[in-house]
């Protein structure tokens, strides 16, 4: 049976891991390679590295960090942040990333999704979508939530699927950093609309939040950052809990 994936996310800024509340107020929580290795040893199923400085400050994701990570860890990992061309994507894959994630670049240039997926395979292309709920609708937002768009979430997820995305990483700005639980209704809507895997992100604060999102939606993975960084929940503890709650996880 396919297991539900528990995915720690490491937000990288200037080569260090950081995590803030609703993307602001960043606090340094350590060396990404050391942290990645720790998560792997604790049983993380996959890792995501997002260079959050890259888009805002036009900084390219560090290839050398990807090489270092690849040497140290033996589970799959995704790298995102600042990828704006096929060349960027290819370089990261060659350096050892299993998948790349596109966010604002995909919105500015949707054909980039098609270009990359045709060249290196759909399975390598994760589309990260940040969403904000306004006036009863869910809109896509970019640049770490600072830019609003007129794009409706339900349209965008279907567009990216058609263009060849292999996976969607959905972050609800409404719940991100709050620790009040995942935005179930938005996640449910998306995971019912597409036939590619969806990873839920934003709002995990307690173990039961993961149980809720896995029981109530079709997502195949749950992503979180701060609860793991600050060790309020450990990965083994979370997986044992989910296992007891009849949710299939890798132990």
């Amino acid at each position: 049976m396919l297991k539900k994936r528990i995915i720690p996310c490491l937000d990288i800024k200037d080569g260090k891991t950081v995590k803030g509340t609703q993307f602001l107020d960043l606090k340094d929580v350590g060396d990404p390679v050391v942290l990645a290795k720790k998560y792997m040893e604790q049983g993380a199923d996959e890792l995501v590295f997002l260079d959050i400085s890259a888009t805002l400050e036009k900084r390219k994701t560090l290839i050398s960090l990807v090489r270092k990570i690849n040497k140290e860890i033996s589970i799959p990992f995704t790298v995102g942040g600042g990828i704006s061309s096929l060349e960027d994507a290819k370089n990261l894959i060659i350096a050892g990333a299993d998948k790349i994630s596109l966010n604002s670049a995909a919105i500015q240039n949707p054909t980039l999704i098609k270009e990359i997926s045709e060249e290196i395979g759909s399975q390598c292309v994760v589309i990260a979508i940040d969403v904000k709920n306004m006036d009863g609708n869910s809109f896509v937002v970019t640049h770490s939530g600072t830019n609003k768009t007129e794009i409706l979430l339900k349209d965008w997820v279907q567009t990216v699927e058609k263009l060849g995305a292999g996976e969607i990483l959905l972050t609800s700005m409404h719940s991100d950093g709050t620790k009040n639980g995942f935005d179930i209704s938005t996640i449910k809507m998306v995971s019912n609309l597409v036939k590619i895997p969806v990873i839920a992100s934003g709002g995990a604060g307690e173990m039961k939040h993961f149980k809720e999102v896995f029981n109530q939606t079709n997502v195949t993975g749950g992503l979180a950052a701060s609860i793991f960084h600050y060790e309020s929940i450990s990965i083994p503890e979370l997986k044992n809990y989910l296992n007891q709650e009849q949710i299939p996880v890798r132990l």
């Binding site: 049976m1 396919l2 199923d45 036939k195 895997p197 195949t220």
Partner: peptide, 13 residues
Amino acid sequence: PENEIVPHMGWNS
């Protein structure tokens, strides 16, 4: 089949 989530992605026994 088209009606499943594809790719089959993740850990399986």
